[in-house]
Design a protein around this nucleic acid. Sequence first.
DNA 1: CCGGATCCCTTGCGATACTG
DNA 2: CAGTATCGCAAGGGATCCGG
Lengths: 116, 116
Amino acid sequence: MGDNICLTGHKKEIMAVHDAMDVLSGKWKISIISSICYYNGRRFSDILNDVHGISNKMLSKELKDLEINKLIKRTVFDTQPVTVQYNLTEYGCTLRTIIDNLAHWGMEHRKAIIGK
Amino acid sequence: MGDNICLTGHKKEIMAVHDAMDVLSGKWKISIISSICYYNGRRFSDILNDVHGISNKMLSKELKDLEINKLIKRTVFDTQPVTVQYNLTEYGCTLRTIIDNLAHWGMEHRKAIIGK
DNA sequence: CCGGATCCCTTGCGATACTG
DNA sequence: CAGTATCGCAAGGGATCCGG
């Protein structure tokens, strides 16, 4: 019974995680964000290279999603041929901590896998 | 070529993020982990309730994946009927920071959405 | 260089029903 | 309660070609 009061409290956090994942889930989104984030602005073809295995179609679609959610912004430079740059918005930058943690965890994880 | 040295540095982090997502991606995994994490041990049907929208089939499958990756452990209690509890392994607990960050970001994100 | 359009196969995943 | 089995659609996502 005391328990249930506690339960209610946790639901809130679980839902919050769920909300976050609503925007971030998808096979590629977080990798894409990390590419843009670490390079502090990045072009389409560069991201295509950074994110191993992604197709241009998927990249195009995921970038659009992220733009709609105001996490990144798209800037077109009128060169010949056109170049396009993607940057994190201020809002997108608030993900930095999460990205860093994931990168850190990913490195440790890799060690754990190899070491075993 | 000078470029590439710089690139290499960032590639490492991007790959690390990718490695992390290898284990964590999927529509439900992170939500499941957060449920188990916040309750410090959780049963099948409880997770089914916590994670809004998941089906028993998917939950079963995702739990199996997480177990294979040593992030959670499964304990069967020989009651009538059987009860099963899922807990984070020590290794799984290293995700705590990430979960907390996501929960925090999710709450802010919700505010941002509603506020707009 | 950036990305849209099309084709087509594969997978995710929900619904439902069933077992120990 | 804690799953497994089967069905079947819809979405995911790769390959390729094309236009600005």
